[in-house]
């Protein structure tokens, strides 16, 4: 992709007359290529944007408009009605706050846990290190269905059902985040740590004041990832939360899905509202996210 874009860029650059004459046939070819490229990109754009557009259409129209033939493609005037209905059904502000609180807290704690674990696994040598790292990676392969009931039993025995503690705790040590961060920490120059040690800095100080600040992109990437995981988390909160006012957004949204009657205006409005924070979170950290995902290669 990058290479193609370069080609397009080159073709639009100003060239000397001689060069222009010389390059004419090639330029035509490039133009054709660009047209083809942009058409293709345009199609992909429409395909990926349309679901969001449809979501917006649904949120501003009456439920019955979702079922017309030909389909309704223009925004309607039911935005406020749907919003009010949704608020009556699930109490938007309460569940939105619940979700933000749970996800925010989760990101902070999980990041602290995962970053520490990743740092140790990347920069210290001790017996069983490989084994522990492998165990982390292997644990990614255990399907959550297998742990659901034992975990539930555990939370129930601890009398923690219907608490946010129960929602957050089991996933704090998130293997993928540890893996992602470890790969990034590996690239951190050990010499820097050593010179800090010579200067008398404690290990904690090295980690907090030297390593962490230079790892911001990786941490941002991991935090987006963790945020999304918790924000979209459905099954576990559903099982451990027992009152409507404790529900997180996805669980509350799902409660709209009754048997024979579903108000799609409300559902779509809810989905729209649930998408906004993710987009906002991503846009804020976008730059870091991309460079963080590319990881140590860019370092």
């Amino acid at each position: 992709m990058a290479k193609n874009l370069e080609v397009i860029e080159q073709s639009t650059n100003k060239l000397t007359l001689a060069e222009r004459q010389q390059k004419k046939p090639k330029k035509k070819k490039n133009k054709l290529k660009a047209v083809w490229m942009y058409t293709l990109l345009g199609i992909f754009l429409v395909v990926s944007i349309f679901p969001f557009y449809w979501m917006f259409i649904g949120a501003t129209n009456d439920s019955s408009k979702m079922f017309t033939n030909p389909p309704t493609l223009l925004p309607g005037d039911q935005f406020m009605t749907n919003l009010t209905n949704l608020n009556e059904s699930i109490g938007i502000f309460r569940v939105l706050f619940n979700s933000l609180f749970v996800s925010g807290l989760y990101v902070v704690i999980a990041l602290a846990v995962c970053a520490s674990a990743a740092y140790v696994l990347a920069k210290y040598n001790f017996k069983g290190k490989k084994f522990i790292f492998t165990a982390f990676l292997l644990s990614m392969m255990i399907p959550y269905q297998a742990t659901l009931i034992p975990l539930f039993q555990m939370m129930s025995d601890f009398n923690l059902l219907n608490t946010y503690f129960a929602v957050i705790a089991p996933q704090l040590c998130f293997p993928f985040a540890i893996f992602l961060l470890r790969q990034n920490f590996l690239a951190f120059p050990t010499e820097l740590m050593e010179s800090a040690r010579l200067d008398g800095a404690s290990e904690t100080r090295i980690f907090i004041s030297i390593v962490i600040p230079s790892m911001r992109p990786a941490l941002a990437a991991a935090s987006i990832f963790l945020f999304m995981t918790q924000w979209n988390n459905f099954m576990w909160p559903l099982v451990v939360l027992n009152t409507n006012d404790m529900y997180t957004f996805p669980v509350a949204l799902s409660s709209l899905m009754g048997l024979s009657y579903i108000d799609y205006g409300q559902v779509m409005m809810g989905v729209t509202l649930a998408t906004v924070p993710i987009i906002a979170f991503f846009l804020t950290l976008q730059k870091q996210f991309i460079s963080g995902m590319l990881g140590s290669a860019l370092k």
Binding site: L161, N162, T163, I168, M246
Partner: peptide, 14 residues
């Protein structure tokens, strides 16, 4: 941080 979390949500269990 956990204790803080508990204080917020844990009051009304079943």
């Amino acid at each position: 941080l956990f204790l803080a979390a508990c204080g917020n949500g844990g009051s009304d269990s079943e």
